[in-house]
Design a protein around this nucleic acid. Structure first.
Length: 492
RNA sequence: GCUCCGAUGGUGUAGCCCGGUCAAGCAUACGAGCCUCUCGAGCUCGGGGCCCGGGUUCAAAUCCCGGUCGGAGCACCA
């Protein structure tokens, strides 16, 4: 980091800074989720505090949690270098939410509302109490009992927290805290009352002694709603920091859209390169520190911001250039036939142009009757006029005689070994020998496949390695076999 | 419609709370040059910005008001 993120606001006077990242396990983490996650982790570490991961899985029917998503999230966080000190599942804590609800009803801080949603909305709009607001706590408790034991059905009753029916923001007026939901939950069974976000969140932040909440600005009014709970609890609310939403240029970051697209078969998986999931970024060879860097650069700004791929590319290039060995790859190969080649030519291909200590590969070009064949990329030769010169990198120079796109053949003749002067303007191109060629497929950012031939040493690379295909781009090794190399394109 | 936010070069930010040291810093992108057997990396230099209009003040990117544009919320979602 060239620039430190700002210090955590109002962090003085806390015994320990406690932050929580609280995702809904209904999909994979995206770059959008990475923002609060990384910030929470960053400040927890910087302040010697504690980081809590809390799964907010309390909406069995509207936002059904996905059993697999819990692990996805933990894995994605681990990839980012985030290891929470504690992990909580709200679905394990229902009794706690019930206990508080009962207390609130008992003390008249909350009531069981039997209004139909539309009915209540009318009172809310007018700023007037509904008939249930002033119910006797004993009646409230017996209704609450009926919510729990089945005497009331979904939609018939809801527990509301008393706020202020004249609050300027109608959304704050007596908001619902718990409702009946009988849908199945992937983790627990036998519960029919579930807390709503503002209830479970406020109770948990209170119980877990959360000192600072970093969350998206879509929660701005939730902070106001939850402030009433803290008021009734007689404890100060956590410091709330709202950050802007993140957009990733040209990518889908919405979990629901991702899951829908996946169900419709629009994507190849959670790590489809078109998606803004952390899994996709990882698959494309982005280093976690790159994600952390862009997030930390945005800091605690509440203004929304758009991440540009070119920034991600630049940071990742910086992160991987040193480790990325260089290999030759020609896509949609054309065959070049070179005449008048000396008996035997050796090419020495350095593994890394800036790291001679890594050594080089020696490739021996054999000729028959002074003729040599090798593969080159059509885009390097397609429009060349006869007489054009080319430098086959690390090998020799040729002069092109004829290019035939139909037979995908280029005829050329040997034109010396010396590296041409830069001023000559001779283009340097990569090549692959037929005897050394292996089928190589690269998944591109738009999920299309680029196919061609690569050098055989590619088959020796372990999955996960980042390499650079010279004059093509950085790629991550996905899988290799004896005959096929599968790569994922990172960036130029 | 109602409630609430935000606005610094192409992009992301620093500065704004506590007005002068800001003729606005950094990163990335862009341009030029050097270097390099890659369209990669490195090095040097360069152009580019305080949304608009008023006000307060000796002094405003910073404070106030209005406007414009952008965003969020107004779910028995999180």
């Amino acid at each position: 980091m060239k620039q430190e993120p700002p210090s955590l606001p109002r962090a003085e006077g806390f015994h320990q800074v406690v932050l929580r990242f609280a995702p809904n396990p209904d999909g994979p983490l995206t770059l959008g989720n990475a923002r609060p996650a990384v910030l929470c982790d960053y400040y927890a570490k910087r302040m010697n505090g504690k980081l809590i991961l809390r799964f907010e899985d309390t909406s069995p029917s509207v936002k059904p949690p996905l059993k697999e998503a819990y692990d996805w999230i933990i894995e994605d966080l681990e990839w980012l270098g985030i290891h929470p000190d504690e992990i909580h599942y709200q679905s394990n804590r229902l009794q706690t939410y019930y206990d508080y609800a009962e207390k609130f009803i008992e003390r008249g801080f909350a009531y069981v509302c039997l209004c139909k949603p539309e009915e209540f909305r009318r009172f809310e709009k007018k700023g007037e109490p509904c008939p249930h607001r002033d119910q006797d706590p004993d009646l409230g408790l017996s209704l609450w009992e009926k919510m729990l034991n089945g005497g009331l059905n979904p939609g018939e009753a809801v527990v509301r927290v008393k706020t202020d029916m004249k609050h300027p923001n109608p959304a704050v007026r007596d908001w619902p805290a718990l409702r009946i939901d009988v849908a199945n939950h992937p983790r627990v069974a036998g519960f029919r009352v579930w807390p709503l976000y503002n209830w479970s969140c406020a109770i948990d932040d209170h119980e877990m002694r959360v000192s600072h909440v970093i969350r998206g600005k879509e929660h701005l009014t939730n902070e106001v709603r939850q402030s009433y709970v803290f008021k009734y609890l007689g404890s100060p609310p956590p410091v709330s920091i709202h950050i802007g939403r993140v957009r990733l240029e040209g990518s889908v970051l919405s979990k629901s859209r991702i899951m829908r697209g996946l169900a419709e078969g629009a994507y190849t998986g959670l790590d489809d390169p078109r998606l803004g999931t952390l899994k996709a970024l990882r698959r494309r060879g982005f280093k976690p520190e790159v994600v952390r860097r862009v997030v930390l650069e945005m800091g605690l700004n509440i203004a929304e911001s758009t991440v540009k791929w070119e920034n991600l590319y630049a940071y990742n290039r910086e992160a991987v250039d040193w480790e990325a060995e260089r290999y030759y790859f020609v896509k949609n190969p054309f065959t070049m036939i070179v005449r008048s080649v000396p008996q035997q030519v050796e090419a020495r291909l350095p593994r890394h142009p800036s790291r001679p200590e890594l050594g080089s590969r020696i490739i021996v070009l054999k000729t028959s009757d002074g003729e040599a064949r090798l593969f080159v990329s059509p885009e390097d030769v397609e429009n060349l006029a006869p007489g054009s010169r080319l430098r086959l990198m690390s090998l020799f120079n040729v002069e092109v005689e004829d290019v035939d796109p139909h037979s995908k053949t280029v005829k050329a003749f040997f034109k010396g070994l010396e590296v041409p002067e830069k001023s000559s303007g001779v283009k340097l191109i990569q090549w692959v020998l037929p005897s050394d060629a292996v089928e190589t497929r690269v998944v591109m950012p738009d999920a299309s496949l680029t196919e061609g031939l690569g050098e055989s040493p590619l088959t020796q690379l372990n999955p996960g390695r980042i390499i650079q295909l010279v004059r093509f781009g950085f790629c991550r090794v996905e899988a290799v076999s004896k005959n096929v190399v599968n790569l994922v394109f990172s960036h130029p």
